[in-house]
Amino acid sequence: MLVDSHCHLDFPDFQSRLPEVLNAAAAAGVGRMVTISTHVARFETYRALAEAHETVFCTVGTHPHNAAVEPDVPAERLIELSKHARCIAIGEAGLDYHYDKSPRDVQQQVFRTHIAAARETRLPLVIHARNADEDMIRILSEEMRRGRFDAVLHCFSSGETLAQVGVELGLYVSFSGILTFRNSEDIRRIAAAVPRERLLVETDAPYLAPVPHRGKTNEPAFVAHTAHVLAETIGVTDTEIAQITTSNFYRLFSKAASADAAQSQAVAS
């Protein structure tokens, strides 16, 4: 089984064809998906998706693009919403200095609030980082000294130093369809250096469709192509990369493991 650890099933791209998308994912061996929050105000949408589909989990958080829209959501609110049984992580939150859709100081403030919530709940933090390596390294290092938290650097497209520091701090690193692009030699080199026990795969659907679907709307089924390239990159088989990344997913997102175990027990009884 493969896991798409990061997608956006609430986006308009999937509204009219979600059953088709979920069926395609199952046919491709993608057994679990995490639909990621970009607005805390939309949590009921994410919750409803996760409740309606046993293969889907959700998160709660504010994307850095939306930090100026939701600048004052307290950690307590994130903590309360995260108690839902199908909510398995905090985020996505972080820093995006490529588009700068929110002021950088506001992004940093909101990011630190999400770190506090992740620390308190002991749920992993899903981190968005783009063109902000220096500040990301500084904030992660400062906050980790204040108290440990688990996290994943999602859709990794940053520099080697951030990957190294992230691994040193105990973070996981997730790779998207970018890994399959012809001009992504540096990302593949970084992926090859990440310890196997810290690797995840994702789509970030509907964005960043991998080769051979580049330019099309991405969807969870396509994570199999990214997994195949990651397997080639680190020198293992497709079966082995599925085992590695799925095991890593359940270790990091331990609430998902508990939910699946409870579901299996309920079915058995």
Rank of each mutant, 00 (worst) to 15 (best):
Y172I: 01
R189S: 06
A118P: 12
G159I: 01
V167K: 04
V165K: 10
Y97M: 04
E134T: 05
G177R: 05
P103E: 06
F156G: 00
G147I: 08
R188E: 01
I90Y: 02
R86A: 00
L179P: 01
R77F: 10
K101E: 15
A163V: 02
Q107V: 05
R104V: 03
Y97V: 01
A117I: 08
N131E: 15
P71D: 03
L78K: 09
A192K: 06
F175D: 07
G170R: 06
D72V: 04
E80S: 14
G166C: 09
G94Y: 02
R112D: 00
A75Y: 05
H128C: 11
D204P: 15
D204H: 15
A118L: 11
V173P: 03
L81S: 13
L199F: 06
T180P: 01
Q107E: 14
T113R: 13
Q164T: 06
D204I: 12
R86Q: 06
A89V: 01
A93D: 01
A85Y: 01
K101M: 15
V152T: 08
I88N: 02
P71G: 03
D100T: 07
I79M: 11
R86C: 01
S174L: 07
I137W: 02
H98A: 13
V73P: 09
Y172M: 08
G147H: 14
S102E: 14
Q108Y: 02
A163L: 07
C155F: 09
D96G: 04
E143S: 04
A89M: 00
V110M: 09
D186R: 15
C155T: 08
K101A: 12
I127V: 14
Q109T: 09
C87Y: 03
A191C: 09
V110F: 06
R122I: 01
A118G: 12
G177F: 03
V73C: 06
T203C: 10
I178K: 09
V126C: 07
S176M: 05
I79H: 13
A151Y: 11
E80F: 14
Q109G: 09
A129F: 00
N131P: 04
V201P: 05
S82P: 06
S184R: 00
A151T: 04
A151R: 05
F181K: 00
G177T: 02
R138G: 00
D204R: 15
R112E: 02
A85N: 07
P74C: 09
F149A: 12
T203W: 13
V106N: 14
G91I: 00
R77A: 08
D100E: 15
R77W: 12
M136T: 06
D72Q: 10
Q109R: 15
E92N: 09
H84I: 00
Y97P: 04
E92M: 08
H98P: 07
L123T: 10
A192W: 01
S141F: 00
L179G: 03
V152E: 13
I190F: 04
T161F: 13
T121H: 10
P206N: 12
D135R: 01
I90F: 02
L81I: 15
L200C: 05
N131H: 10
G147S: 10
Q107R: 10
D72S: 11
L153P: 05
L179H: 03
L125C: 07
S174C: 08
L153C: 08
R145N: 11
V165C: 08
D96L: 07
S176P: 05
A118E: 06
A85V: 02
I137R: 11
E185R: 14
K83R: 15
E197K: 10
V165M: 06
L153G: 07
L199V: 03
